[in-house]
Amino acid sequence: QAPETKIVDKSRVACDGGEGALGHPRVWLQIPEDTGWVECPYCDCKYVLKGSKADAL
């Protein structure tokens, strides 16, 4: 199944896999201003900063 994409309001987000005990260790991710998105290294969930150029795609 394809990784999930989430639109977020802040450039710093936490990801834990979203499945409680079945998820992964919580990691904090920083969305770079130049790209407007970041992917979780564990679950490949893509976080897109709302209003960024990546959000316009």
Rank of each mutant, 00 (worst) to 15 (best):
T5V: 15
G20R: 04
C45T: 15
D9T: 14
C15D: 00
I31D: 02
Y47S: 02
R12G: 05
D55Y: 00
T35F: 05
Y42H: 07
C15F: 00
Q30Y: 13
R26N: 01
G36H: 02
W37F: 13
G20Y: 04
H24G: 04
A56L: 13
D55P: 04
R26Y: 07
G23R: 14
Q30V: 13
P25Q: 09
Q1W: 14
D9F: 14
V48K: 03
D9S: 12
K53Q: 11
K46R: 14
Q30D: 13
G17V: 04
R12I: 14
G51V: 04
G36C: 02
R26D: 00
H24C: 01
A21S: 10
R26H: 02
K50R: 14
Q30M: 13
V13I: 12
G36P: 02
G18M: 14
D55M: 00
G17N: 03
T35I: 13
S52T: 05
A21Y: 10
D34P: 04
A56D: 12
C40Y: 09
S52P: 02
C43G: 00
K53M: 10
R12D: 10
L22E: 09
V27G: 01
I7F: 09
K6A: 05
P3M: 14
K46Q: 03
Q1S: 13
G51D: 07
P41I: 05
V8L: 03
V38Y: 03
A2D: 10
I31F: 02
E19K: 13
G51K: 01
E39H: 12
A54V: 04
K53F: 08
K50T: 06
E39P: 01
Q1K: 13
T5E: 05
G23A: 15
V13C: 09
V38I: 12
C43R: 00
R26I: 07
L49N: 09
H24W: 04
L57Y: 09
L57E: 13
L22P: 06
V13R: 01
D55R: 00
K10D: 10
L57Q: 12
L57M: 12
R12L: 14
G23L: 07
K50W: 04
T35G: 03
E4M: 15
E39D: 09
K46A: 01
C43F: 00
C15E: 00
Y42V: 12
K53N: 07
T5S: 08
V8N: 02
D9N: 11
P32H: 09
G17C: 06
S11G: 06
A54Y: 04
D16Y: 12
I31N: 01
W28L: 03
T5C: 15
H24I: 03
A14I: 09
R26W: 08
R26F: 05
Y42I: 14
